[in-house]
Design a protein around this nucleic acid. Structure first.
Length: 424
RNA sequence: CGGGCUGUAGUAUAUCGGUUGUACAAGUGCUUUGGGAGCAUUUAGGCUGGGUUCGACUCCCAGCAGCCCGACCA
């Protein structure tokens, strides 16, 4: 893409309203636009990041046999009354139309997915034979947070992947649950924050006494966790007590306290939602049982914000290659005719090789401003074509997280970048 | 939801109870181009409602909005 055609612009200064790093950098870079507290629009650069995260998650969900759907955001009031949550869920958005009919804007989809499934499942024979039945979607959720905060880390409208699994036995559920733990780890590794993300024991679990959260260490985090570095065990502050320490063979003095943000959770629902809707199956003895359920969430927009919180420096964002909007930021410096021509050739050639490149072909922009923009926008590779580089018959390449670049020939450039681009 | 702080141009700020000043951004022209260039020129502003006052962007009250702390948050 040619940057001269990109409608968004970068900003030098951050809004004084935005304190969080993710909001500051994402707004300055033109990735997102704030509409309301906790409500953001995604602009071209930001949407590319979100789509990449989405595709990584989709790939991993499909690996465990997840079947993707898209459920409605507008949800019947009756369904929510059946589970009792029309009254008890305080952050439920309720909207009404001209006739006075009320509907909920979906904060989660148990109330929708279970009635859907009831139409198709009634026997153990309706479940997949060699895998579990799991349904997921990637969609905007609405939650009336009393206090939206920290940029896109806690919003009122946000992108989320929610998966629901359905089982005919506790064994099947537990097997699937363990698989999801692994898959979640893979996802956080792939988006570049695996080294800071811990599977954390928290309260609220029913089948194993604990629930599991995936917590990423960041000072902006809302949770406090304790990590035993030696074993990699992490505990949410809410479950830290003597009994737990003994159970996990941990020594309190060796635990390190960190602020963290919950980037994902996996949950045992048992029959909490299958019972109100009578979602059940008949076994081979003609016995009827309620279906067991699990649910598994990842906030995509929160994940994107977390990456920015964790991977940035004082100049801007440092995107991991896996989710960067473009792999290469190509800068043409100066108004020299030869430079423009060569830069154009490099651009076309990278495009031909299916390398995602943002080409800063803007005229009348000083070199300093282009460099500053490249740092702020944070593509993994910066490639510069200038009179200086042409003198040495090449282009300058610099990784975003490196101090200095080096001049390499165009052939070397393709050799260095193309294989990686293809593997992504 | 409780508490605190803040509302002036697209953004960031300044002054003032008496015609809101500047910088950046945006537009135009010319020059400039390896770390956020220069000159000229144009556009654009007091959150809403009430009160005090001869006069309110400024003081007071209410509302609304935003941020921060807390509470809340499968």
């Amino acid at each position: 893409m040619r940057q001269s055609q990109l409608f968004t612009k970068t900003r030098k200064e951050a809004s004084s309203e935005e304190v969080s790093r993710n909001a500051e950098l994402l707004i300055r870079g033109g990735f997102i636009h704030k509409e309301l507290a906790g409500v953001y629009s995604y602009l071209p650069l930001g949407l590319r990041v979100l789509k990449k995260i989405e595709n990584i998650i989709r790939e991993e969900m499909n690996k465990v046999g997840g079947q993707e759907v898209l459920m409605s955001s507008m949800q019947p009031k009756e369904n929510w009354e059946k589970t009792g949550r029309w009254e008890t869920m305080t952050d439920l958005y309720k909207v009404s139309d001209i006739s006075g009919r009320e509907v909920a804007l979906g904060p989660t989809h148990e109330e929708i997915v279970v009635p859907i499934l009831k139409n198709y499942v009634s026997s153990y024979k309706n479940f997949p034979k060699n895998s579990s039945l799991a349904i997921y979607q990637i969609q905007n959720k609405f939650r009336m947070e009393l206090r939206a905060k920290s940029g896109i880390l806690r919003g009122r409208e946000f992108m989320m992947k929610d998966m629901y699994s359905f089982h005919t036995s506790a064994e099947d559920f537990e097997k699937f649950y363990e698989k999801m733990k692994e898959i979640y780890k893979t996802i956080f590794d792939r988006v570049g924050i695996g080294h800071l993300t811990y599977l954390t024991f928290a309260s609220g679990g029913t089948f194993s006494k604990y629930s599991h959260e995936f917590q990423t260490i960041t000072s902006l985090g809302e949770d406090t966790i304790y990590i035993d570095e030696a074993s990699g065990t992490a505990l949410n502050k809410e479950v830290l007590n003597d009994e737990v320490l003994i159970q996990f063979h941990l020594i309190k003095e060796k635990l390190v306290e960190h602020k963290s943000i919950e980037v994902g959770n996996i949950f045992d629902l048992k029959t909490k939602y299958s019972k109100p809707f009578d979602l059940s199956f008949t076994d081979d003895q003609e016995q009827k049982h309620p279906v067991l359920m699990g649910c598994y969430g990842i906030g995509l927009s929160r994940l994107m914000g977390t990456v920015v919180e964790v991977l940035s420096d004082d100049k801007g964002i440092i995107w991991p290659e896996s989710i960067a909007p473009f792999q290469v930021h190509l800068l043409a410096l100066g108004e020299d005719k030869e430079v423009k021509e060569q830069a154009g050739k490099v651009y076309e050639s990278l495009e031909r090789n299916n390398i995602e490149v943002l080409f800063d072909d803007r005229e009348g922009i000083s070199a300093g401003e282009k460099f500053a923009d490249a740092d702020l926008l944070g593509m993994p590779y910066r490639v510069v074509v200038s009179e200086r580089s042409l003198k040495e018959k090449g282009v300058e390449i610099k990784k975003r997280n490196e101090e200095k670049g080096k001049i390499i020939s165009f052939k070397e450039l393709l050799a260095q970048i193309a294989p990686k681009a293809l593997s992504i």
